[in-house]
Design a protein around this nucleic acid. Structure first.
Length: 505
RNA sequence: GCCGCCUUAGCUCAGUUGGUUAGAGCACCAGAUUGUGGAUCUGGGGGUCCCCCGUUCGAGCCGGGGAGGCGGUACCA
């Protein structure tokens, strides 16, 4: 093969923000997805798959223009010059699907579906943030019943429990209507001012109330020296906002109820406002429903500091937050924070149909959750590789292939054993190294001597590794052949099975 | 997007005031060892010193620009 001139060779590399997933992680992931799916199914949600690509206008983002065709979403033009985009979440395609179903009158409402798959965002990747990641969503479309929202919260809680996170998470619940009520009472007319104020509140977790206050007022300079402009609210406005959140968003009240937070909201001056009151009633209902179903406030908690998608949600909003911390390999404390979220969005389908179609749902950030589970050590250890049958005599490949098949399909009807014949061309020592790297539990060896006796040698690599810790002399482990047995050919499968059983637990 | 730090072998890193052929440890490959992974010894393969331009007799080192990575911050459907 002619070598390409060195300068012309492409560099083997991945675009930034994308990654490959090795075997162990793929296995963990599919196990995790199966667990989530089971919970979603148990709530009666039905699976739905939609394509990765939609018309850009159907996704409800801006149309890309000549200057910035790919801001935020990956987009390109079809042959007919229509703009297409990779989906950036699973909710926008759902809205499109539902709108079509309503148009053709083929969709029974309420419609409840779950969906899982990769989504893409064309933005700067960061720690734990990629340009392709997986979401797992469940949504109920076509009802404004608060019970649907309460159930979404329970679903989120059950899912995290099923993943082994009992006591390590909380589903925080708030209501966008509270914010709208507060805004009306305070008489804030400027949208940008109000958006800035809400973003400030959202940063409470990280900055504390002092940080939030400076962002509500003049702005704040962070540690990197960057200045974040504030919302420029008046001092009384800022104080009133802080007062209510300060009081109601106390998250360490551990009496198991939401009474304190709800009472603080009820007693605030904003309770006079009809929107605020409506939001409060919905929160009370969600709290009552989840308490009645056995989820106390340590699991599903009313927390007025939750903000989330600003121009998107119209009622209750949810956030699934992990509450534990973990030290990374550098000894730094890592907090995973939010691993999912959702809420009520009554306006999404309306874009297509012109009629209001209320909907509520929840989305899990699968990759982030997986990283958290891995850090917790909750995930299963990586298993052993296949049994490797060595090729001692190249003329007898057919015999070795037969041995592998006997392991894969035992004629005693026992469970299949993962096995492979060495497919390279190297000598025995290299084959042993190969088996070691594959994490093979054992190897099967049959050279001329064994063949003559009708036997096979089976070497337990895991036992052998243990033995090597005490054996220091090369000759000793070589000649002593630790963890190696010679058995009649007929006993090969049974002997391998014994070794696998020994290392099972 | 903005701010800061970083980039030398597969990995972790040395590399003097600018000076010959750029090093170490680990990893990898091979041999010592009729047919045995993990010990020891010996040998070996690996480099666009991130890229480009400039200064200089001479640049891994100095200057300018760019890219990539990391951290923070902003945005986040």
């Amino acid at each position: 093969m002619a070598k390409a001139p060195k300068a012309n060779r492409p560099e083997a590399r991945l675009p930034k923000g994308f990654r490959d997933t090795p075997a162990a992680e793929v296995r963990q992931l599919s196990h995790m997805l199966a667990t989530i799916r089971q919970v979603y199914e148990s709530y009666g949600f039905e699976p739905l798959e939609t394509p990765a690509i939609e018309y850009t206008e159907a996704l409800g983002k801006f149309l890309p223009d000549q200057d910035r065709p790919n801001e935020g979403v990956f987009s390109f033009q079809d042959e007919d010059e229509q703009w297409l985009s990779l989906r950036y979440d699973l909710t926008a395609p759902l809205a499109r699907f539902v709108a079509e179903g309503i148009k053709t009158q083929t969709l029974p409402l309420p419609f409840r579906r779950y969906a899982v798959g990769p989504v893409w965002r064309n933005e700067k990747p960061g720690p734990g943030r990629f340009r392709q990641f997986t979401q797992f969503d469940a949504d109920t479309v076509g009802t404004d019943n608060v019970a649907a929202d309460a159930e979404i919260c329970m679903l989120a809680a059950d899912t995290l429990e099923a993943l082994g996170l009992k006591g390590k998470y909380v589903i925080k619940v708030n209501n966008r209507k509270l914010f709208e009520g507060i805004r009306q009472v305070l008489g804030i007319t400027s949208d940008t001012q109000w958006l800035t104020a809400m973003r400030a509140i959202d940063k409470y977790d990280r900055l504390g109330w002092d940080g939030v206050e400076s962002l509500l007022r003049d702005g704040r300079k962070d540690d990197s020296g960057d200045f974040t402009p504030g919302a420029a609210l008046s001092e009384p406005q800022a104080k009133e906002i802080l007062a209510i959140f300060n009081k109601a968003a106390i998250t360490d009240v551990l009496d198991g109820t939401n009474d304190y937070a709800l009472q603080a909201l009820r007693e605030s001056k904003f309770a006079m406002n009809s929107l605020f009151e409506e939001g409060l009633k919905e929160l009370e209902k969600i709290s009552a429903l989840s308490m009645a179903a056995g989820y106390d406030a340590s699991v599903i908690r009313i927390d007025p500091s939750v903000v989330r998608g600003l121009e998107y949600y119209t009622g209750p909003v949810f956030e699934a937050e992990l509450t534990f911390e973990v030290k990374n390999e550098d000894g730094q404390t890592v907090r995973f924070g939010s691993v999912g979220g959702g809420g009520r969005y009554d306006g999404l389908v309306e874009r297509f149909t012109g009629q209001k179609v209320p909907a509520t749902g929840f989305s899990i950030g699968v990759s982030r959750l997986q990283a958290a589970l891995a850090a917790l050590g909750t995930t299963r250890q990586e298993g052993y590789g296949p049994v490797v049958v060595l090729v001692m005599d190249k003329d007898r490949v057919a015999d070795y292939q037969k041995m592998v098949q006997r392991l894969r399909r035992p004629d005693d009807g026992g469970a299949p054993i993962r096995a492979e014949m060495y497919l390279g061309t190297a000598g025995m020592k290299a084959q042993m190294k190969y088996a070691d790297k594959r994490h093979a539990p054992c190897v099967v060896i049959q050279g001329g001597d064994e063949k003559a006796k009708g036997e096979v040698q089976i070497k337990d690599l895991i036992e052998g590794a243990k033995a090597s810790e005490t054996i220091k002399d090369a000759k000793e482990w070589r000649e002593g052949r630790p963890a190696q047995v010679s058995v009649p050919e007929a006993d090969m499968v049974a002997t391998v099975r014994e070794i696998l059983a020994r290392h099972k637990a």
